[in-house]
Amino acid sequence: MSKESKEQLKKRLTSIQYAVTQENGTEPPFQNEYYSKEDDGIYVDIISGKPLFSSLDKYDAGCGWPSFTKPIVEEEVIEKEDYSHGMIRTEVRSKEADSHLGHVFNDGPGPNGLRYCINSASLKFIPKSELEKEGYGSYQKLFD
């Protein structure tokens, strides 16, 4: 995959998608596309199209952003220390596109106790019914 230039990304993405993924921005809580979405499917990186999260691991953390207990493929998500805004947090980035996705916290449910708090603007949702058509047929098994 050849990496898109900043100019190409600015043309393809909305202003909030660009600000989040390329400038480490954050969209407003409760005012984003996927925080309350409950449909079955997968969430892919808006830049590279790589699968990142599944609706099966999504839950309502009450924070106003989509929250997941784990990525679909751990290796596709990179964690980095983030010291911005006077806090120490763990930033989550997509491996292939190096997009800012959000942050991971250790206050989640499940065996690992993790909460991946992800900006909707960094994601594209692929409904379960369209996985095959969109080229993600191998992920259908998650829902069978």
Rank of each mutant, 00 (worst) to 15 (best):
S2T: 14
S2I: 14
K3Q: 14
S5Q: 10
S5M: 09
K6G: 01
K6V: 13
K6E: 12
K6Y: 11
K6N: 15
E7I: 13
K10Y: 07
K11N: 08
R12D: 06
R12Y: 04
Q17S: 10
Y18D: 04
E23R: 01
E23H: 01
G25E: 04
G25T: 05
T26V: 08
E27Y: 04
P29L: 12
E33W: 02
Y35N: 14
D39W: 02
D40V: 02
G41M: 06
G41F: 02
G41S: 09
D45I: 11
D45W: 08
D45L: 05
I46F: 06
K50H: 10
P51S: 03
P51F: 08
P51M: 00
L52S: 00
L56M: 08
L56K: 15
D57K: 12
D57E: 13
K58V: 06
D60C: 05
A61Y: 01
A61Q: 00
G62D: 01
P66D: 04
P66N: 01
T69A: 02
K70Q: 11
K70N: 07
K70D: 05
P71D: 00
P71T: 00
E74V: 00
E75Q: 13
E76N: 14
E76P: 07
E79P: 00
E79I: 08
D82G: 06
Y83L: 05
Y83S: 03
H85V: 07
H85C: 06
G86W: 04
G86R: 08
M87C: 12
I88C: 04
I88K: 05
T90K: 08
E91D: 06
E91G: 04
E91R: 12
V92T: 15
V92W: 00
V92M: 07
R93H: 03
R93V: 09
S94L: 11
S94A: 15
E96P: 07
A97N: 03
D98V: 08
F105P: 15
D107M: 14
D107P: 13
D107S: 13
D107N: 15
G108H: 04
G108N: 10
P109W: 12
P111G: 15
G113S: 10
L114E: 03
L114T: 13
R115S: 11
C117W: 12
N119R: 12
S120A: 10
A121I: 04
S122N: 05
S122I: 10
S122F: 06
K124V: 15
I126Q: 04
I126F: 04
K128W: 00
S129V: 13
S129R: 15
L131T: 00
L131E: 04
E132I: 13
E132V: 15
E132T: 11
K133S: 08
K133T: 13
K133V: 01
K133Y: 02
E134F: 05
G135F: 05
G135N: 04
G135W: 01
G135R: 03
Y136E: 00
G137W: 03
G137R: 11
S138T: 10
F143D: 06
F143H: 05
